[in-house]
Amino acid sequence: MYNRKLATAVALATLIFGSSMASAEVIESSASEMAGITAADAMDLNMVTVEELMTLPGIGKSKAQAIIAYRTEKGYFHEVDQLTEVRGIGEKLLEKMRHKVKVVPK
């Protein structure tokens, strides 16, 4: 609840005072840090297994397999937002797990 309020407050301030990529990074970093997750802890979508994906919120075996199938078919992920191209993963689900995943460039 606190994380959501903080993110909302920062987003509102960003809208009022101007937006930038840096502001978005601050919001994402702050939420992750408060959740106790660092960038080093996040799973690399290009290396993660089905079993590891299943530990993410809202990801069961079929969605985990769909993520791996997407990666196999399309090649490496270039950004986390590509997860919305996987069947069954929308913006809401992506936001629930965004702080737990990352993409390491290949």
Rank of each mutant, 00 (worst) to 15 (best):
S23M: 12
S20Y: 09
A39W: 12
L83E: 03
H99W: 03
E51W: 03
V101T: 03
L6A: 07
D81N: 11
S30W: 00
Q82D: 12
M47R: 14
M1C: 08
K100Q: 14
P57A: 12
R87Y: 10
L53S: 01
A31Q: 05
E73Q: 15
V104S: 07
E51C: 03
E33N: 11
E95S: 14
M54N: 03
M54C: 10
E28M: 10
L15F: 06
L53M: 04
E79V: 13
E28Y: 07
V10H: 08
E73Y: 13
A66R: 02
V26H: 04
E52Y: 04
M21A: 11
H78T: 14
R4P: 06
E25D: 10
L53Y: 02
T14G: 09
L6P: 01
S32H: 12
E91N: 14
P57N: 15
E33D: 06
L56Q: 05
I37D: 14
S30N: 15
I68A: 01
M54A: 02
L53V: 06
T55H: 09
R4V: 05
L93V: 13
K5H: 15
E25G: 09
F77I: 10
E73V: 05
E33C: 06
I67G: 00
S19N: 10
V26A: 12
N3F: 11
K96D: 14
